[in-house]
Each structure stands twice: as C-alpha cells, then as structure tokens.
Design a protein around this nucleic acid. Structure first.
Length: 423
RNA sequence: AGAGAGUUGGGUGAGUGGCUGAAACCAACAGUUUGCUAAACUGUCGUACGGGUUAAACUGUACCGGGGGUUCGAAUCCCCCACUCUCUGCCA
C-alpha cells in the first residue's frame, strides 16, 4: 500500500498517477487519507500524554507503598480511575482511526510510473517492440488443442475425470516438454545470477496480505479451509514473502531469486471464447523471477528482467512483442509493467506469457521489507517480479508455430533437455 | 491425532507484580593498543508511531509469539489462539 508520507509529500504526483488509473474521485480519497492520518496522530498523541501521566502516578504509588504511606497512595489512586476511562476511550478512537486508514489505503492502487501511458483497457497498451518472424504455416494447420489430441500429448478429458475442467494431464512427450521447459528456465535463471528456491505452494493469510492478493482477491485463490491456507496463484507470493518482516543489509541487495511452482487460479467467471486449450487453466506451471533492490536500482533491474525474459523467447525462437501496460490495464500493485506476448500462429493471436513489474515500495510497505544502509537508516526496499516463463501458452505457441505435416519440430535449445527433436 | 514442555532483543539466555526496554555472555560495529593478524581494553549496539531540530542532540508512548482480561502498575497472574519441541500413534 501507499505510504501516507508519500501522499503528503508528493500529493500532486500521487493525484496525477491515480488519474492515470482513471480513478475519478482521487482527490477525495487522498484528502480522506490525510484527514484520517491527522485524526490518528492527534488521538495517539493525546493518548500518549495521558498514559505518561498515568505512568507517573503508578510510579508514585509504588514509591509510597514502599515507604509505607498507604493512605497517601490510596488518595492518588482515586485519580487513576478517571484517567483509565479517558485512555480507554482514546484507545478506541485511535484504533478506529488506524483501522479506517488502513482499510482506505488498501483500496488505493500503486502510483504509475511517469512512463506509463494513459488508457482505459488493453487496447491502449503501448507496443514497445516486436521481434521475430511470424511463421507461414502449411495448409491444414491446426490450433494446439487439436495438435495435442493428434499427437496424444495432453489430455483434458482425463483431467476432467481426475479433477475438473482446466486441469490437464500431460502425457509422454507432452510431459517431457513440460519438464524440459522448467529445467531450461531454471538453468537460464541461475546462469543470470538468480538463486533457486523451492517454496511451499500453500501459504497463510499473512503472506496473502503481504503481496496484495488479500484482502480483495481471495475469490481468485483456492482455499484449504480446514487449515486456513491458500494455494498460490503465483510463486511471487511465497518467494516475495520469504523477505517479509526483514531488514536486509544494503550489501545484500539486489536479492535475486528464481523458483518453479505450479500455480492455481480459480478464474471465477472468466470462461468464454479465447480460453480454449492451454490458453487459460486452473493449474499451470511457471518459473518466476523475483528481485529485491535498492530504490535507486529498481528501474534498471526492471529493464534487465525484461531483456532477460526476451532472451528466453529468442532462444525458444518464438515471435514476440513487448507491451508497456497503460494505467487502466496495469495490476493494482504495480508501478510499471511490461507484458511479453508470443504469437501463436494457428490461433493467429498474441498470447501473454510473461508480466514483469516493478512494485516500488507498494509491496515492501506491507511486507515491512527494509534494508539498512551505510548511514544506519532503515528504508523500504523495492520489489519486482516477472514470469520467466509461464508454460502453457509457451507450449501452445511452440506446438502451433512449429507444426509441419511430418510432425512438430522442437526448438534447438530444448533438444538436450528433451532427448528428442520432434513430436 | 493424544499427552507434556516451551515461545524474551541478531544469537545463547536471566528474569514470577513496581527500581526491567529488559541482566549476562556471544556476534556485529567504532576506537585504543599493535610491524601485520590475534588477544586485551573502551564505547556503540532493537523496532514502530509522535514531539523536537536545517540535520542531530533530546524527548513521549508502545512493543518480551498474537489477541483479550485482572491490577494504580504485567515479560511476570488469568483466558483464548497460533507456532515450536519431546514422547506415543500414523505416514512418503
């Protein structure tokens, strides 16, 4: 969430940022934050003063008791009754102000970076670059949901039997392709300086709040009610939360982690056209990269993450484009997001396979993720993450783009991982 | 899952109602000493929200797993919850 001081000190900038997100009552929201914070401060300060008085009296009573002057002690004690009532009342007011303030801050999204384009929807995203050649396919080309049946490598019907729609079963070369991609992505990330972590894929409530899935998006996560745990929608949640409530040394920055996990998304109500086959699933595999950086370094880190992801797509020989998301399409917690889309030649569509974002201090404020520098001062770090990469749509485009009448050719870079070069 | 024991500052660990934001030791940091290193010695050494200052200094309050209660006063007593450990059971 945003920092109140950030709102106070950069009011105009925050206001303009929220405008970019098409929030019409931004001024109202921000003024309300400041008013609530003022209220919080004043009740807090009154409470502290009275508490200080009470503490003094308590000490006096202790002293008098020790000296055996219990009559005098009794006299002072009577005054505390009144003070206690006041403290209780101020406590309640203060707690309410704090609660209201927090609830309000939860509803305010991150301030977009100055380079974020104005816009309302995906159509207003800015195409930063397009790379690679879109293949010309033979007569009788098939979309991937036909290809997987033809070659019997992914079975949706079996998944329905075992679990339900959106939980495919990968078989034979399909399963091998999954494993090859995961290993390829992990090896590449390690070579780029990311430390591999294998986190739990169920997380508690605190972690959900830490990265911003809660309180608003609980409907998107599967929930294990008996144990109060959520299945992760992305490895971002457990990996970033590794650093919750931590004060790092400045010399530890940047922290670079990579992790492979399955991801689970309920995607309630989002079924329709365009979601056939592998395009949208309830369970899918993803390798995620996360960085924790010094505030001065986070945008350089974002660019390096973007080029890193592009490098993967180039090695996989997939045509792709990079989008800078507009204010209306950007995630709630992000300050700047690049989406990478690959072209899927049979569907004749661009498919999002990665989303790389800088959250600045929006997540670290909730996470209490700070670092201590040379000057001994603690300040919030910046957090970033990106998919590198999400598997299903990569698989879809590899299958569609490389299909030939004789079979599907695998990208060269995967051959050693696969142990075969054609499906 | 059953029974028992625990949860204190970066770590170990004292502390059963006021003099405890918290002993002691270790680690860390700065300095003295030193040819260098080590040892020794001295000092610093938590976080949050306020006040204060150009910035400090200084200062108020809170925090001993989380929440609530008793009390003039709680790390200390009571209740609820979470987690950890040990034994028993189960299990990849």
């Amino acid at each position: 969430m945003l920092l109140v001081n950030q709102i106070r000190e950069n009011y105009d900038q925050v206001f303009a940022g929220l405008q970019k997100r098409n929030i019409s009552d931004a001024a109202l929201l921000l003024d309300r934050v400041i008013a609530l914070d003022d209220l919080r401060k004043s009740t807090q300060s009154q409470r502290d003063q009275i508490q200080a008085e009470a503490n003094t009296i308590s000490k006096q009573i202790g002293q008098l008791m020790k000296e055996g002057k219990s009559a005098e002690a009794q006299l002072i004690r009577e005054r505390t009754t009144e003070i206690k009532a006041q403290i209780k009342e101020l406590d309640e007011q203060n707690a309410k102000a704090e609660e209201d303030l927090k609830a309000l801050l939860y509803t305010i999204p991150n301030v977009p970076h100055s380079s974020v384009p104005q816009g309302r929807s995906a159509e207003d995203n800015e195409v930063v670059l397009t790379n690679g050649t879109i293949p010309t396919l033979h007569e009788g080309k098939l979309p991937h949901w036909e290809l997987i049946k033809k070659y019997d490598i992914i079975d949706f019907d079996l998944g329905v039997k075992i679990t339900g729609a959106g939980f495919p079963v990968y078989k034979g070369k399909g399963a091998r392709l999954q494993r090859a991609l995961i290993n390829f992505f992990l090896d590449e990330a390690m070579a780029a300086g990311y430390m591999e972590v294998q986190p739990p894929i169920l997380v508690n409530e605190d972690s959900g709040y830490g990265t911003g899935q809660l309180p608003d998006k609980e409907g998107q996560m599967y929930f294990a009610a008996a144990d109060n745990l959520y299945l992760i929608p992305t490895a971002e949640v457990p990996i970033t939360n590794l650093y919750r409530d931590i004060i790092l040394n400045e010399t530890d920055l940047p922290v670079k982690n990579v992790g492979y996990t399955p991801c689970f998304r309920r995607e309630a109500g989002s079924w329709g056209a365009h979601v056939r086959g592998l395009n949208r699933l309830h369970q899918f595999d993803k390798v995620e990269i996360v960085q924790i950086t010094h505030p001065d370094q986070s945008y350089a880190a974002l660019e390096s993450m973007s080029s890193y992801v592009q490098g993967l797509l180039q090695k996989l020989e997939l045509p792709y484009r990079v989008l800078r998301l507009c204010g209306g399409d950007m995630g709630f917690t992000s300050a700047l997001t690049y989406d990478m889309e690959v072209y899927s030649a049979a569907q004749e569509r661009w498919l999002e396979v990665s989303s790389v974002s800088n959250f600045e201090t929006y997540q670290t404020n909730r996470l209490k993720l700070r670092f201590k520098g040379e000057d001994k001062k603690t300040q919030l770090a910046h957090s970033l993450n990106g998919s590198a990469l999400a598997l299903p749509r990569i698989v879809a485009s590899i299958l569609e783009n490389n299909q030939t009448p004789e079979g599907i050719l695998m990208p060269k870079v995967l051959h050693s991982y696969l142990g075969f070069d054609k499906i």
